[in-house]
Design a protein around this nucleic acid. Structure first.
Lengths: 236, 236
DNA sequence: CGTCCGTTTGATCTGTGTCAATCGCTGTGG
DNA sequence: CCACAGCGATTGACACAGATCAAACGGACG
């Protein structure tokens, strides 16, 4: 599946729920207009592709609604889900001229689009924006480095615990409740994110459940019963 | 081992070999003085620690000579070497108020130091510098994301191949020869970087040697005989 | 009601970790 | 000068965690 993405005019920042989470917040409110002038809107239906690995990188995005996955494939079919993107996340921190990852919608999603050219112009005009982008890039770097420990040195259940805590905290920042997580992605996505197989992910869920650390009926809505235990298991 | 680091006055950017690799290059040459005014120099002997995980983050650094490792430890002793740092690399892309990693010298090393306060001031005065830092942060993010694939989905020999290619390319950019790599770190460091054990790292070296992809007598100086094969093995 | 897809659970197999021994180099002290 | 201790790297034997193969379950949807 690909295509599917529909472009439209930007709806305006006025009642954007996501603004204060995104780099847009770095721009003082009185300059909001400058952003709106160059922004567009994209809607990406669930299961379709926003950008393809290897395609020239001409635009950057801020996710406003929905969830995306950042995917890399090896020739033999092995798959990595480098990250899951949530509202407020910026897509475009890269030095490469081509996209290094395919980005696919897990749920119906909406994004603000900017051409890189426009964004560069905006940054030179408003240094606060560039400095906000640097700060956000640093935060993303922190998060990515944390995943390294997860993948390199933690066991399956520990990886899953770390993943759940991370997702919970990110959803919390977006107004969710700390003690449960919504997982719109499949077990396969989680497996490819944690460097495991679906079977091992599933077994790790049952293990955490047996340890009274989590509880769930719907496999996509997990209650974090013992957050402290999960954090400890993940080495946090 | 810790302490050991000696501070001194900055020697000046005039004949710095590393300048064009580092963020310093983002500052037009005529403003070099502004950098020198606030910079200091630190020498860190091999085996000693530059910064401790958990300590307050007050300074940022640019490595000018030597090699460092960025380390994270779990309570039970498991260790991750998140990255190896080479001349020109910047230390300080993080949003956290505390260091997330301990940084230790593998060989005798020298760095330029800046207080974060001074660096912030410099950035507001010279937006080109901030934009250069953003670019470098993006590059580091690209590299870190590449490690994710390595750790999540590649087998031991593939990880090692990817590591060797990466090190070779970075040394090449610093004036080295593409077809061999210097590895001043131990097998344990490599293992903790690749999420393996020393034994598996060693076996992977012999495997790559048997496959005619590399050759070496000294285990710390590796000839990359078949660079194409190494790149292919790493999924590049 | 039946099919399909995602998830869970079970049985087996394999690759990597673990444990252990050896080799080679370096530096030290007799 | 040589013997020896210590450390890093390599190699071998074995065990076990997680992958693979296979089957069953449950909800969504036609």
């Amino acid at each position: 599946m690909s295509g599917g993405a529909r472009r439209g005019p930007h709806p305006g920042c006025r009642d954007c729920q996501t603004r204060d989470l995104a780099i847009c917040a770095a721009l003082p409110f009185e300059y909001t207009r400058d952003l709106e002038d160059v922004a567009g809107e994209i809607r990406v239906p669930a299961g379709t592709t926003l950008v393809h690995e290897g395609a020239p990188r001409r635009e950057v995005y801020t996710l406003t609604h929905g969830m995306l996955r950042r995917v890399r494939l090896l020739p033999d079919g092995r798959r990595l889900v480098a990250s899951f993107l949530m509202p407020g996340d910026f897509i475009g921190f890269s030095g490469a001229p081509l996209y290094r990852h395919t980005i696919e919608a897990i749920t119906d999603s909406e994004l603000c689009v900017f051409s890189m050219q426009d964004m560069r112009r905006l940054c030179t005009r408003h240094p606060e924006l560039e400095s906000g982008m640097l700060a956000q890039a640093c935060t993303e770097l922190d998060a990515t480095r944390a995943s390294l420990m997860l993948l390199a040195r933690l066991g399956p259940a520990e990886r899953l615990a770390g993943f759940l805590v991370d997702m919970a905290e990110r959803q919390h920042r977006r107004g969710g409740c700390v003690d449960h997580v919504d997982l719109p992605m499949t077990r396969a996505d989680i497996a490819d994110h944690l460097g495991l197989t679906i079977e091992t992910v599933s077994r790790s869920f049952t293990k955490l459940r047996a340890a009274q650390a989590v509880a769930f009926d719907d496999p996509r809505r997990i209650d974090l019963v013992d957050l402290a235990a999960l954090r400890a298991a993940a080495g946090l």
